[in-house]
Design a protein around this nucleic acid. Sequence first.
DNA 1: AATGAATGAGAGTTCATTCAT
DNA 2: TATGAATGAACTCTCATTCAT
Lengths: 199, 199, 199, 199
Amino acid sequence: MARKVGSVGAETAEKVRHAAVSLFARYGYAAVSMRQIAREIDLQAGAIYNHFPTKQHLLRGLLVEHMERLLKAWDEQEDPSLAPAEALIAFVRFHLRYHVKCGDDVFISYMELRNLEEDNFAEVEQLRRRYEIKLRRILEAGSAAGVFRVGDLHVATMAVIAMLTGVTGWYRYDGRLSLQEIEELYIDMIRGAVGMKEG
Amino acid sequence: MARKVGSVGAETAEKVRHAAVSLFARYGYAAVSMRQIAREIDLQAGAIYNHFPTKQHLLRGLLVEHMERLLKAWDEQEDPSLAPAEALIAFVRFHLRYHVKCGDDVFISYMELRNLEEDNFAEVEQLRRRYEIKLRRILEAGSAAGVFRVGDLHVATMAVIAMLTGVTGWYRYDGRLSLQEIEELYIDMIRGAVGMKEG
Amino acid sequence: MARKVGSVGAETAEKVRHAAVSLFARYGYAAVSMRQIAREIDLQAGAIYNHFPTKQHLLRGLLVEHMERLLKAWDEQEDPSLAPAEALIAFVRFHLRYHVKCGDDVFISYMELRNLEEDNFAEVEQLRRRYEIKLRRILEAGSAAGVFRVGDLHVATMAVIAMLTGVTGWYRYDGRLSLQEIEELYIDMIRGAVGMKEG
Amino acid sequence: MARKVGSVGAETAEKVRHAAVSLFARYGYAAVSMRQIAREIDLQAGAIYNHFPTKQHLLRGLLVEHMERLLKAWDEQEDPSLAPAEALIAFVRFHLRYHVKCGDDVFISYMELRNLEEDNFAEVEQLRRRYEIKLRRILEAGSAAGVFRVGDLHVATMAVIAMLTGVTGWYRYDGRLSLQEIEELYIDMIRGAVGMKEG
DNA sequence: AATGAATGAGAGTTCATTCAT
DNA sequence: TATGAATGAACTCTCATTCAT
């Protein structure tokens, strides 16, 4: 067998990404050095540059890829035949599960936006907006159908997302409440917040 | 009097704090150097050390003082005679106004927590919890009085605060909606989220 | 006495310049590190940046200041009343003495031109051209007066300067020939080269 | 034959040499990386080491081979039957043509001497001296024959070579003067410099 | 003979902090 | 209280070189 082209390299790149996510989440992009990332995976700092041209590229990659995975995951599980009420509930469950599972990715994709250079920032912002629109469309449909009572679509969208994403700040795997319980609590609150008719 | 003792110094310290808040908010604590802060106010970096023993002390001061101001502001305007429903509305208005007005302070007090050394972190966390408890007590009272329907007190507290604080992420002074309009929208949503009886 | 403002700093800057000239001459700009320069004068590398913003600025300064000193030195000793033949001889003696005395400065100002960034290069080139013109004017005057026989002014200027400057490549203070002897030899050769009438 | 043994390799080595000469001439040995050289010829840096054991060997090779080619070229065209005056003129023409044609090789063989390690330096210096001696012998013969008037053989040799080599610094293929014109100008000046009797 | 990944050292530069003045 | 100069450590990134494939 010839060279396992792209194999060893791809593995190392993945390890770098993983270590970086974890360290950036804990200490912040600016506070984490390339040496720290390298040390975490028993590598010399210089070797990272075989896989990522700069620290900034590494960050951009993490955020862009996180957003793309998130969008893809939603697209794959979205069921367009659902009525708005069910669609909203599905979105809430999806968002909570995904954000709780990928805590670090989510966290840095909120915290490290300001460390992106202008172009990279714009790119990630656009992806984020595409995700927000997923929710907005649901609220819009429910509003139009008269099953939600939403004062302002944009504000409601931001409020629901902020509320849900906040969970990543305090959720613990072995906490007082299970993820299922938390889901039900949030579904209840969000139903109320968007004025969903009982049913 | 040869010199307004303590006056010039206090002024400089205040200028440093102000420049630091603004720079930390924009670029993050770790990405901002003492030299940058000094340059902003036409000073040499060394001079900052006449007023703050370390960069970490400077950060701690900013967060602690922000939280103490926030708590004091609430304490000053809280009206213990209000019924839970009115108290909640008052809290929502207060939180939105304060957070929108002191955007940078609020922002860094969320973003830079992880850059605090252990003890300082604990101190700020405790202050934050004291603030959260203000809201929690209101929800608790409303729940007990049967005017709110809250599945879990802690979750509801966190959800409401996350929802409200999210506003600082997108609010613009000259945006589409006035602060008053935003307040009404949030009051409506939060009423729904906590199952407040119409009235 | 208050602070000896600019004294300590100016001294250090001068020491840096001196060490840099000497090291650049021996090993070349690109091959010499800021740490090497610093070590030479018992300083930390970082401290150099209190006096020179970048390594490139340091180099530019050395070359520009060398050329300016050279021009000033010539201007101070030039005697406009001299006839072309005597003026040429005076120039030859001046150039040899100055270039032999300031060997390292001269050397790097030829060798390190390509390490200058575009703007800095243009600046130094212009100074160099101003110096060449000093000789050219002499040759021109002698040509016009019929005391020199010069085929092409520009070529003759370059040839004489190249010939003279070459001395720095092999001159040794304690070599076989004294500077005086070398001067006489070059005066003879250059007289011949420019077709100066015997006198 | 499955493979042109030694052919592909020799070609690559030649490409490396060529790229290196060109880059060293423009930026200097110390400022050029093996990666830069490799990139220039669409290669990975590591591959260069199949052809040259170190960067220093590569440099040494370039200088030694340049000097050997130069010496061989002179040896091939030297006509020992020429009288000193004609021999000098032949040398001038040869030197100018060769140095103008092989500008980069010549340039680095002057500029990069100091980047040679001790032994390699000695080797190249010896070759250079062998070349200088070619001129020296001519001057010597002319002096002995009474057709040149040379104050000091060594100084005259260095002066003539410096003067001639200086041309590479400003000669342009499409400049104001053709190479032929430049040759005549230099021949005239050098005749004068060595006190050649008119004839 | 070439690649892609790695090492270990070192580059230029900036950092928080100190201190004599 | 402020300055300007210094330290020693750290930063991102590049280097020459090696080596398994």
